[in-house]
Design a protein around this nucleic acid. Sequence first.
DNA 1: CAGTACCTACAGACGTGTAGGTAGACGCCC
DNA 2: GGGCGTCTACCTACACGTCTGTAGGTACTG
Lengths: 211, 211
Amino acid sequence: MPPTDRSADDTRERIIDAAQAIFARDGFVGAKMQEIADRVGIQRPSLFYHFKNKEALFVAAHEQIFAKIEPVFRESLAPNGDPFVQLDRVSRAVLAVMAEEPDFARMVARTSVDRHPAAVKIVRTYLQPLVDLSVAFVRDGQRRGIFADIDPFFFTLNSWGAALIYFIARDLLAPIAKPNEPKDLARFTTTLLQMGNRALAPNERRAQRAS
Amino acid sequence: MPPTDRSADDTRERIIDAAQAIFARDGFVGAKMQEIADRVGIQRPSLFYHFKNKEALFVAAHEQIFAKIEPVFRESLAPNGDPFVQLDRVSRAVLAVMAEEPDFARMVARTSVDRHPAAVKIVRTYLQPLVDLSVAFVRDGQRRGIFADIDPFFFTLNSWGAALIYFIARDLLAPIAKPNEPKDLARFTTTLLQMGNRALAPNERRAQRAS
DNA sequence: CAGTACCTACAGACGTGTAGGTAGACGCCC
DNA sequence: GGGCGTCTACCTACACGTCTGTAGGTACTG
């Protein structure tokens, strides 16, 4: 139908976009190459012209996400400045990226719980370094006596879990929540930061530098 | 129900146990009936003698979990007593049940992110009522002026996300964390409760006008 | 001898990846 | 600038494995 633009790069990107939506919904095993092809508007075998196989497409789909998120993460958590401000910044930034492309978050969430070798590989390659960064960040804030003595690894897990579950829940629990995307996400971000700040703040009236 | 033969019930339970492990690892689509049968030590078609089809087994596997968790939840959150004590109790109780059978948590996590109709049905039937309970609990504590003014729905999501991600992460991030199951779970429970309590505690000493 | 619990064998559907063909764009040479 | 080969992006057709669910048989048990 569309005037076959025949630009390989353009098609490649459209395939990745479609793949993200499908992988986000169905996971690696559940996703069908046919459906991805349908979305792009090409025949299924043509996908194999652009990507060696399903797994290569899976990797490419994730690569594109983490290429966006990783620098945000790395810059925001650079070891200097007020950790509460940094925490605030990185949370907002990551959530903003995710809000912009909700498939991102859903696909990452989907892949995180997947034990399929293809998914495990993604997690090891792309997700784990970010978790390491976050753990180091919390640990550093504690060493400097700024953060409360909460387990950094579990605090990180909690934050990831909380952030990802929002995008999962948006679909799942829509019937009760009647989500209003931008407003709800703002509310969620606020709640999350509030909880994070409170959890990390030492018990007494120590630091209120955030927000 | 049909006249209960002693070995039939036993097999049924062994099938459910095996199914929980496989569904936890691979999700509904990824799980293979063959592998479930292998674990039980019977031929695959025999599964269809006990369960109409794959989905019926999927439902049965979840039913067994929620039958254990739901009463704990409902009793612990009954609207009386100190909400902080209740929060403490329900968290420990649910985490204890999950620790006892780690496949439970992993399967629920897996199913929660799954958009497959079979999974969506599970969530609507079993998971949503528990979320509703939790939201009502937080809302009640706030109405009584005991909990801080945090969004109850998002607080609940956060708690679920945090609890589930522990069991996911246990596998995924094992290489860096070198988990020591009982000890780590205890640490995690403590951290989680600490965070929950702090998040829900009104800002008594801190000078932040919200009241 | 009747019912239960399990078996073997098979059908049918589905999904990935490949083989091999084609239409158009592009340079090149006379 | 028209014929000519070549490359790119996509196509049709198909091989082939895998998985669910069923048909129909059998052994054990009371």
